[in-house]
């Protein structure tokens, strides 16, 4: 049997752009779980997550011929999805509350929360991730996080967008993204370490450094 090389994602993309629906479907099936997962974690509601997923891929069909490939397809699709999520969040919040893009005193490095419970975890992240009964606790820690931090963490750390791409998707400056990301990481670390850290190995911060 001759060796048939699997088409790369870029091959699939070019075939899809030329009108090949099968290649398009393969790309969609790869991206679907990421889009749905992102939307679900932002919106906490399966109907809204479905709507965002549907809108995102329908928009992808329409804009596919004009996609200039300045970023990866995944990054582009995640940005479209983020946009639809933000629309839903804005609608939910109404005009009473401040927008996600508005800056507050916590959008600077002053008064960063100092880590409280510092201890090595009793298991590795891989071991913890495999235990489905812990999943709700992990997701709960994420849900407790303020929206403005959660979105930045999801795009940058979970989906792997760059700081610049995250800033563009959220319509924020890169420096605001960095501060929010740091606060998100510190907050999640604190919550997860309180669950997975070993109390017997807890350390007390040493502030004598100069």
């Amino acid at each position: 049997m001759p060796h048939v090389e699997e088409p790369t994602d870029v091959d699939l993309l070019h075939r899809a752009k030329a009108g090949d629906f099968e290649s398009f479907e393969r790309l969609v099936s790869q991206l679907q779980p990421r889009v749905y997962g992102l939307a679900f974690r932002i919106l906490h509601q399966s109907q809204d997550a479905e709507d965002v997923t549907q809108q995102t891929f329908l928009a992808l069909v329409e804009h596919l011929p004009g996609f200039r490939e300045e970023s990866s397809l995944a990054t582009w699709v995640l940005r479209i999805a983020t946009n639809f999520c933000l629309k839903i969040l804005r609608k939910r919040r109404g005009s009473k509350t401040i927008a996600l893009s508005e800056l507050g005193p916590e959008d600077s490095y002053s008064n960063l929360p100092h880590p409280q419970f510092i201890s090595a975890w009793t298991r590795t992240a891989e071991e913890i991730a495999q235990q489905s009964e812990l999943r709700s606790e992990i997701e709960h820690a994420m849900q407790e996080l303020d929206e403005k931090y959660r979105l930045v963490f999801l795009l940058r750390d979970v989906e792997g967008l760059s700081v610049r791409e995250t800033a563009e998707a959220m319509e924020l400056t890169e420096s605001t993204v960095k501060v929010r990301l740091l606060r998100a990481r510190l907050a999640l670390r604190e919550r997860l370490t309180s669950k997975f850290g070993d109390p017997e190995q807890a350390l007390v911060p040493d502030h004598r450094h100069t």
Binding site: R41, A120, A125, A129, D157, R185, L188, L192
Partner: peptide
């Protein structure tokens, strides 16, 4: 303590990045 905080943060990121998909 700082070393452990950094390790905790790396584990935190890894946990969410490689968790089960919805």
């Amino acid at each position: 303590p700082c070393q452990v905080v950094i390790d905790n943060i790396r584990q935190t990121i890894s946990l969410y990045r490689h968790g089960q998909p919805y």
